[in-house]
Design a protein around this nucleic acid. Sequence first.
DNA 1: ATGCATGAGGT
DNA 2: CCTCATGCATA
Length: 415
Amino acid sequence: MQCASRLSLPTLSSAAAPSAAPAAAAAAASTSAFSRSPMQPFQGNALFGSFDDPLLQARAAQAALENIDVKNVIPMRPDAMFNYSNYLMSSQAGQDPHNLYQGIPSSSAGTSDNVFDPSLLVPTSSDQSIGGDSMTSLQQPFQYPMPVPSFAAVSSSVSGDFKSGNSSSSAARYPLSAVPSEVDTDPRELERFAEHFKQRRIKLGVTQADVGKALAHLRMPGVGSLSQSTICRFESLTLSHNNMVALKPILHSWLEKAEEAVKNKDIQGDLSGILPNTDKKRKRTSIAAPEKRLLEDYFRQQPRPSGERIAAIADKLDLKKNVVRVWFCNQRQKQKRSALSSLLSSQFRSNCRTVMPSVVAGLSSSISNSAVSSSSSAAAAAARNAVSSSSVAASVAAAAGLPAFAAIGNGSYFD
DNA sequence: ATGCATGAGGT
DNA sequence: CCTCATGCATA
């Protein structure tokens, strides 16, 4: 019953995994780009009814989301997956059409049954929370200004390098109709959109979980529901760069429809599809602080321990081997994300921004897909997975006037 | 908001 | 056994 409609992104996996030193600062930066969302549960006694009333509007938005039987709109076929990385890489060079799903307007293609049903906007669950900002005007849902490409070429060499890498070629999970332009992959743009999205979502009185469920009603090919976790991570930029790029058009599409629903004051009754939830709960292992500290030490020494070493560590810490293995996997992922976010918030970013935006995007993806392993052996491993990516990263960094990967992470990270 | 886990696709 | 995208459970 697990995610029937996983929105897994095409993995860029081996396409680019430079063996560079990990981002040092990154570690420290678990800093979420944003504070926290002030979601306030709507306490039902809204007895007012002016149409201008935010609550009423929120209500509309909510209405627009319910009825979620969610999950499963087009289960993904593994064989039908689309390798976004290759796609992205090869497209970086010059295409322009931006915004993949942008056009997917409910309007979308016409099938009457394909039309977005505003009554599906907000899943009304027992705890429906509405109207965080009950006082702000929800009117004029302005359109998110789509960025206009600034530079257009620059990356040709980069994409070339990437392509030369052994790219994989699974199918696509996100059958995108258009190729993302550079702006779409620009970290700055992603950051802007994420913030914008969050603000609007909150004004609409929709929770992250609601958004996730509502996505299934967008009827976008290959797009099903997402969890609160993912929406949260999107808003806080704690997803990989590629993941952000892929999700953006989808969330953008949802936002447009939600705003439209509100505008049309699409009021609907609510629905409460409380899920019985009769499944056994998964238990989450909790690694104690002392053990965690040790794991972190080991990680600094060797981010990618061998099976044997993992077993040894597991034994030493009295943990199950698989728990340790997974911990290392998650640690690596986390570190990559951190590298990206540090990139996004550091001065480095502004430098690149000023110099050449497209380069930053390229670097970001390099980082997000690079093995965060450091040392020598890591180089070998990385090389195995990433062929030319390191050179790409280097050239990219060079182009930005920065010392290769030292720009994002110095070797001291693993000291 | 995040820690630990699962699964797909790869090497 | 890895990487990645995601999700469940929980602090």
